[in-house]
């Protein structure tokens, strides 16, 4: 309990400190890196509540990220207030999740993973065909473009996602999700409505993925309409969650920090080859550190303990 309170205080201090960053620096580079960091924390934590805590592997996160971006951008560029546009984007992602979840989450096994990947692929192709061009901001919005409001939008979305997901996974609902992940059939046997918990996780997950997409639409001055639907947005959150620590609350945060920093470093030094490095890191993580960075201390302790035992004998 004391540990938990300490953690919440630290989290609050970090968020407040981040909110004060614009007072101390005006460097655009810092803002855009932090914006990407907040985006990835949101996107990977939203993947984590469904994949890490509930055990439902969503291989098509891009569909929900992209849906949020598409709807928010369309409404905003058409003149709707931004906060309404981004909320509409998040809700559109939720509707998409409900449509997919109703059939796919009723089944056990790999149907959900295959289904979500199919939806993401279909979404990317469809959007690419219907809107083949580039979405430019209208001149009036371009004229007033500033990174500061973008920074705060991403920060607020991230703080909201972290708070909502923290509260959920530490409640009775979170226990239901973990039971569903650990042994779905046993969970049903003791009275857990596993479908309900999978659906709750999917709705929360898609809502915040959609908001992150809205942030993306607000952040970028111009991009191809299909860009937020590309499969990169499916794989990146999975990569981050596994590197950081799947099914743990801090995993996606730590994973995102590592990912964003290393991606900057590699992109500068290695160009496109950085993807290859992350692919290899991903495989090594799953093989040797299945609990990711967050599980490293326990893993090391275990190694030393074993060695100590051997010496003792």
């Amino acid at each position: 309990m004391v540990e938990r309170k300490k953690g919440l205080v630290i989290a609050a201090v970090v968020i407040v400190a981040l909110a004060l960053v614009p007072l101390f620096t005006g460097r655009e580079y810092v803002f855009s890196i932090l914006c990407m960091l907040f985006l990835y924390v949101t996107l990977s934590q939203s993947w984590n509540i469904l994949g890490g805590y509930t055990g439902q592997i969503n291989v098509g996160q891009a569909a929900f990220f992209g849906m949020g971006a598409l709807v928010a951008r369309l409404l905003w560029v058409a003149g709707a207030p931004f906060y309404l546009s981004i909320l509409a984007g998040g809700l559109s992602s939720v509707i998409l999740a409900i449509i997919i979840g109703l059939p796919a989450l009723k089944l056990r096994g790999h149907y959900f993973a295959i289904g979500t990947l199919a939806v993401a692929t279909i979404a990317q192709i469809t959007v690419g065909n219907i809107l083949p061009g580039i979405s430019f901001l209208p001149a009036q919005q371009m004229a007033t473009y500033s990174l500061i409001p973008r920074y705060y939008v991403f920060l607020i979305i991230m703080a909201a996602a972290l708070a909502a997901i923290y509260i959920t996974v530490n409640s009775r609902v979170g226990l239901g999700m973990e039971a569903t992940r650990d042994d779905e059939e046993a969970a049903q046997m003791v009275g857990v409505n596993t479908f309900k918990y999978k659906m709750i996780a999917f709705v929360i997950s898609s809502f915040f993925a959609g908001l992150a997409g809205g942030g993306f639409a607000y952040f970028n001055a111009s991009y191809y309409w299909y860009l937020p639907f590309t499969l990169m947005w499916c794989f990146e959150p999975i990569l981050i969650v596994f590197i950081g620590g799947v099914g743990s609350f801090l995993g996606p945060v730590i994973g995102s920090v590592c990912y964003v920093l290393l991606k900057e470093l590699f992109a500068l030094t290695l160009g496109e080859a950085n993807l290859l490095i992350f692919g290899i890191v991903f495989i090594l993580t799953i093989l040797f550190f299945p609990k990711g960075i967050i599980g490293l201390p326990a893993k090391l302790r275990q190694l030393f303990y074993r060695r100590g035992n051997v010496v003792g004998r």
Binding site: R172, E178, A179, D182, A187, V190
Partner: peptide, 15 residues
């Protein structure tokens, strides 16, 4: 539920 505590396992039974 192997990774949950004894208490949480019991809690699950009363869901």
């Amino acid at each position: 539920f192997r990774e949950m505590t004894v208490m949480d396992n019991l809690e699950m039974g009363a869901i």
